[in-house]
Design a binder for these strands. Structure first.
Length: 373
RNA sequence: GGUGGGGUAUCCAAGUGGCUAAAGGGCGCGGACUGUAAAUCCGUUCGGGUAACCGUUCGCCGGUUCGAAACCGGCCCCCACCA
């Protein structure tokens, strides 16, 4: 269930609390991504230390390997990976986009050939919910079709209608297999590409189905940032005020703040962890590429105002780890980057509560964009 | 001392007469990354110039040739085996 604690007066920003079977999540929230039942390079304890309240995992990948039945036999993902906080699982709808050459879509579902060995995997709205139940997911995403940008409008309409039909089937099947009784939440996903009218209609039709939560999908698929924000703005107002809104797969720190102002509550993105493995560190003054020679003898920590385990180390040492391809570099930078996102969300929550979110956010963005650390 | 192999740019390495400032890698330098087929991918890497182009390179010295990293002679060095 979702509780709206405070709504901003000068924007659509909201402060809320989402309760799941594994505890409460304070929103706005950023969820680190652990596709393969691991936030890459981090132990669950390290993920927790960053302030993460909930993490993401993936139906398609885990069903292919090691398999949903196996994970279920370990007590679901929580027991398998030893993470006791909430878990949200993506449905595999994003793999429609990212593995587009390896799948076929039909009305009954998605036919994948495994990217690992070519073996067949059929994901229907129903099987998708069953797999997520076996995974023990606290928040199960409906099976959707994440389409590329740009797409032609008639295709977008056709695809979005199918996504809506599938959402309905997911919800019915969730009821049938008993997800709600176990306090497992199902979220529907708004599609519609870059067509505001399709977005609005999709959001309205899904809202009528009374899901426990809603997501805005099909963004960050290569469109310009302005378009992304426009589509979030075109979707969010048509979703129920008293349900959480999750923008899938985003974003940069600035995008998160702008989307919070548009009424978004939840986000996930591989950006902090992927950029960490690629030697980039987030700071209040922008992103640092630690491979740059200018950090070779830099004694400063990444961000002196952000205190976490990584703060103990100099930029020079972190650069050395990165240049030497040492695993610890991935770990330390991942700790830092996720903590940076968590800290940003904590500040956002606090400023929504105190009523000055918009002015704080504007100043924060301006500093982030203006300088180079 | 003998026999065989070898010395190519910052490193490894291809190249045996012109299409070679010289393939490929690596290192370095820079960039990208958004519900993770990603500890990945892309660019760049002799000096000068925006460029056309100019200058200097393939152990060293000399020679053959219109033309050489490549052919010939001498020298220096490295490796393996044999004495």
């Amino acid at each position: 269930m979702f509780e709206l604690l405070k709504t901003s007066a000068s924007s659509a920003a909201r402060r809320g609390k989402l309760t799941t079977a594994h505890g409460a999540v304070q929103t706005p929230v950023f969820m680190p991504v652990g596709t393969q039942a691991t936030v890459k390079s981090l132990t669950p304890a390290q993920v927790e230390e960053t302030g993460a309240q909930i993490m993401l995992s993936n139906t398609y990948h885990l069903n292919i390997r090691p398999g949903a039945d196996l994970i279920e036999s370990f007590g679901g993902l929580h027991g398998f990976m030893k993470w006791e906080k909430p878990i949200l699982t993506d449905s595999g709808g994003f793999q429609v986009f990212s593995l587009s050459k390896l799948r076929k879509i039909k009305e009954d579902g998605i036919y994948f050939s495994s990217h690992l060995d070519g073996s067949k995997l059929f994901l229907s709205p129903e099987s998708c919910m069953e797999i997520q139940m076996k995974l023990g997911s606290d928040i199960c995403m409906v099976l959707d079709e994440c389409i590329p940008y740009p797409s032609k409008k008639d295709f977008v309409e056709t695809s979005t209608d199918r996504t809506i039909r599938w959402a309905k089937r997911c919800l019915e099947h969730a009821d049938k297999i008993g997800l709600p009784e176990r306090n497992r939440l199902s979220f529907a996903i708004v599609q519609g590409s870059n067509f505001e009218d399709v977005r609005a209609r999709c959001a309205q039709e899904l809202s009528a189905l009374n899901f426990p939560g809603y997501a805005i999908g099909g963004v960050s698929v290569g469109e310009p940032e302005e378009e992304m924000l426009l589509q979030v703005a075109a979707s969010a107002p048509h979703l129920p005020q008293d349900k959480p809104r999750y923008v899938m797969g985003v974003g940069t720190p600035v995008q998160l703040l702008k989307m919070i102002a548009l009424g978004a509550d939840m986000f996930d993105c591989v950006m902090p962890t992927r950029l960490a493995r690629h030697a980039n560190a987030f700071t209040k003054d922008g992103v640092l590429n630690l491979r740059n020679a200018k950090f070779a003898a830099d004694k400063a920590p990444l961000d002196e105002s952000l205190l976490n385990y990584t703060t103990n180390f100099s930029r020079a040492y972190l650069r050395h780890l990165v240049m030497s391809d040492e695993m610890l570099g991935c770990t330390l930078l991942s700790i830092h980057n996720i903590h940076f996102f968590q800290d940003l969300m904590a500040q956002a929550r606090s400023h929504i509560e105190s009523g000055d979110f918009e002015t704080w956010s504007t100043a924060w963005i301006s500093r982030y964009n203006s300088k180079e650390a």
